[in-house]
Computed example of a mutant assay.
Amino acid sequence: MMFEFKSPKKETKKIMSDVALGKLDNINFEKECEEKIKELTNSEFAKVTSSGNNSIFVALSSVKGSVIIPDQGGWHGFKQIAKFLGKEIISLKTDLGIINPNELNEMDIPDNSALIFTSFAGYTGEQDTKSISKYCKNNGITTIEDASAGIGDEKELLGNCKISDIVIASTGQPKMINVGSGGFITTNDENLFDETSLPLKLSKTNEIICSGIHEEIKDVKNNLQLTLNATEHLKKHIPDSIHNEKRGVNLIILDDDAKQKTWELKKQLPINKSGFINKCPNYNRVKTKAISIEIKNLNYNCLKNEYLDKIIDAVNNLQQA
């Protein structure tokens, strides 16, 4: 049984091709796309960018104070971009990536600072965005949520500008909005885009990418739910995955022999393109020895029970050996 790496749907490829060939010059896809993003994120202002990292760059450019970054379970680009911009970086202690806002009480945080985090810690544990937002709003801290993996949440707890001040996302492969390139930034702060006009100009993308995002947004809620359901099924049948009770789009299993077991699982669960089984330590997941199984990377036809049961059997047999 061969697993398949996630790719854009055929309708997305078709419309992007048509735009590239000049067949749809009568449609302003950038404008249409930004309207869809605003609707999806409950926001008043949105801009499409050339990548997720460029969206981060724009968001962090607006921060006048320090940038607070989780000590693990985030995205390595947070720190790299903050350093490039000359921002003071404050590391926030977490529970394997899960943010407890009370930890911020113990820290000396300058005025006008911002907390940047991902919807899911290490992609595996849903952040409590409401409690994070409540604390930060009460203490003058801007919240920037990277919702690349949480966009389209039917519960509207993730990727929602009524909760997080700024929502950013990548739409590159294999994100929830899966175009191969691009990203966006969205907010209810009317001043944000005026303050970041130069980085926004440098981050501008094209109509081809906008058309793809516009098409992929149609299915993002269903696709996220399929991924959440598949991961929940795996967590129920594979013991000892971290944040087992939380929603997520992958599962991470702590294991002192992670290197060897990751190698064995890759042989037993082959995929047609890039891998979906990785070893930790890895800042983007957890900074301890573990196996990460990236359900979010799989094509949706591979989220059926026959594929999930193959993963369950392979992992449990290896753990019991």
Rank of each mutant, 00 (worst) to 15 (best):
A149C: 05
G212M: 01
A230W: 11
G172S: 07
A230P: 06
S164F: 13
D219C: 10
I37T: 02
I242V: 10
E264S: 07
G97F: 04
G22D: 11
T205D: 06
E245D: 12
T231N: 14
T49H: 08
W75V: 15
T262I: 05
I312Y: 13
G77Y: 11
I277A: 11
S43W: 04
L40C: 14
H237W: 03
P110D: 10
M107R: 07
I56H: 05
N138V: 00
G97D: 03
S148P: 00
I89N: 04
K130T: 08
Q260I: 15
N105P: 03
K273W: 11
W263H: 07
A290M: 11
P101V: 09
K83H: 11
K9N: 12
Y135I: 00
V19M: 09
G212R: 03
T49P: 06
I291H: 03
T196P: 00
K14R: 15
N188A: 04
G150A: 12
G159W: 06
H214Y: 15
K289W: 00
N178M: 06
A149G: 01
H214A: 11
Q127H: 08
F5A: 05
V58K: 09
N26T: 08
E32R: 13
K36H: 08
E39Y: 04
Q72C: 14
E245W: 06
T12V: 14
N26D: 14
E154A: 13
P239I: 10
K64H: 06
T49V: 10
N299V: 12
L92M: 09
G122F: 11
R247H: 03
N223S: 13
Q319S: 10
K155Y: 01
F117T: 09
I141T: 01
W75I: 15
Q320A: 15
I27P: 01
S211Y: 12
K259I: 13
L318A: 05
I68A: 01
D108A: 02
L269H: 08
K204S: 11
I69R: 01
I238C: 05
G150T: 09
A169Y: 13
F78Y: 08
K259C: 12
K13D: 14
K273N: 15
Y307V: 01
V315H: 09
T227P: 08
N272L: 10
T288F: 05
H237D: 11
A121G: 01
Q225A: 02
K175M: 14
L115S: 06
V167N: 13
H233P: 09
L60D: 02
I293E: 03
N282H: 15
K204I: 07
Q72A: 10
I213P: 05
G159A: 02
P281C: 02
I213T: 04
I56F: 02
F3N: 00
L40A: 09
V220F: 02
M2Y: 14
K279N: 08
A121Q: 01
F29P: 14
K235L: 06
S131F: 00
P70S: 05
I312N: 10
T288R: 10
L40K: 10
T49F: 10
N139H: 09
T12D: 04
K266T: 07
E145W: 02
L157S: 12
I37N: 06
K218A: 10
K9S: 13
E39L: 07
V315L: 09
I291G: 01
Q127W: 09
K246T: 10
